[in-house]
Design a protein around this nucleic acid. Structure first.
Lengths: 201, 201
DNA sequence: AAAAAAATTAACCAAATGGTTAAACCTAAT
DNA sequence: ATTAGGTTTAACCATTTGGTTAATTTTTTT
């Protein structure tokens, strides 16, 4: 069944596509209109300006993606399970939306930090939850100590960066598309294993 | 002592600054001219077009950065030493040029893959060198097996991503600028340790 | 010092681009 | 059928932007 064939929806989808690979600055309203199969004026009818359209798209993406992840992170699953589940979700999501990471990172550089801060997720992701969890495991002698920020950075880096660097990776190392996908798929379990190994006392 | 106060040089420096944070699409020739303290026409006098100017800048950056790294990677230092030295170089370089990663990644997405391939570094970085090195250590019982691509991805991810995501990181977790720097500095040794731990049999 | 060459600028130009307007077109209520 | 409201479009408009030109200034050569 078709998902909302309304013009407004088609515009937003087209905009998402274009913004995603060209970025705000590189995107052209005309291209979005073409891709949506409608007139350029209609863009402005539904979304007043490029800025607003972008904001709508960006907000949607951020809202759908980041909170889910961060919330999982601060859940109270056991550390190891959490790592495995998160990796799973990351690979699922990012395989589907490969240019999301690069898009978010680039656009975050110029402004919408306010947005992200306004967006409930801002400022106050509680790293202390993870830190406590780590400390507990350390106490029990299950893992060696690590600070929450370093832990987070390591994990998120290994999950997200390969997708952000996909082009470079395939380009420089001459890795084929299929092989790239296979490698990413493997990371679903390889990264958690890698991390848990690293944490062994 | 002043480094080359010639107009041509000042232009390239200004261009580097502007391109670096705004990207090719977002950069404005006027802004570059202003920043260089010269007339806009002079940009075209030295570098014919925006595209050419960008290419000059981009090429310079890529040429200075990537090959050095990759070459170190394929050197025949012992694996552990290599990891430590690379991490060192990464932190040195990226602390100095924080927006380099994001810049390269974004711009690589739209075209200059040819450039990177032309640029000797392309296509044929020999992962087999590392793979062999890994295999040797495995043979000796020093580390557990891992494929070279996964190893590379893990390492490069942990080194580069935090810089690419600097804005997001400080924004979302409310980490201060100084703290961010301290954390990055710590990674100079934390990441190598983390990796070597993970590889312990 | 004069001439030649190189560097630099102010004033323009054409194309691209975000945005607007007024008219046409549908669709649902009256 | 007519009207009213929302939807869609073609044609425009103003601004921005990369790029050019012709003249001026500075530097180098003779």
């Amino acid at each position: 069944m078709m998902t909302q064939e309304t013009a407004e929806y088609k515009i937003k989808e087209a905009a998402k596509d274009v913004f995603m690979v060209k970025g705000m600055a590189g995107a052209r309203m005309q291209e979005i209109a073409d891709k949506a199969g409608i007139n350029k004026a209609l863009l402005h009818y539904y979304y007043r300006s490029k800025e607003l359209l972008f904001k709508a798209v960006f907000e949607g993406i951020i809202k759908a993606f980041i909170p889910k992840m961060l919330q999982l992170f601060t859940s109270d699953l056991p550390l190891e399970a959490k790592v495995y589940q998160m990796a799973d979700k990351y690979v699922d999501f990012l395989s589907e939306h490969r240019e999301m990471p690069l898009f978010i990172l680039t656009e975050l550089r110029r402004g919408p930090l306010k947005l992200i801060q306004t967006l409930n997720i801002g400022g106050l992701i509680d790293l202390s939850v993870i830190q406590r969890q780590i400390d507990e495991e350390v106490e029990k002698g299950n893992i060696r100590p690590i600070t929450a920020p370093q832990f987070m950075l390591n994990f998120v880096s290994m999950m997200v960066f390969p997708f952000a660097a996909g082009h470079m990776f395939t380009g420089i190392f001459g890795v084929s598309e299929e092989e790239f996908q296979r490698i990413m798929e493997a990371r679903r379990t390889e990264v958690p294993k890698f991390i848990m190994n690293a944490l062994r006392p």
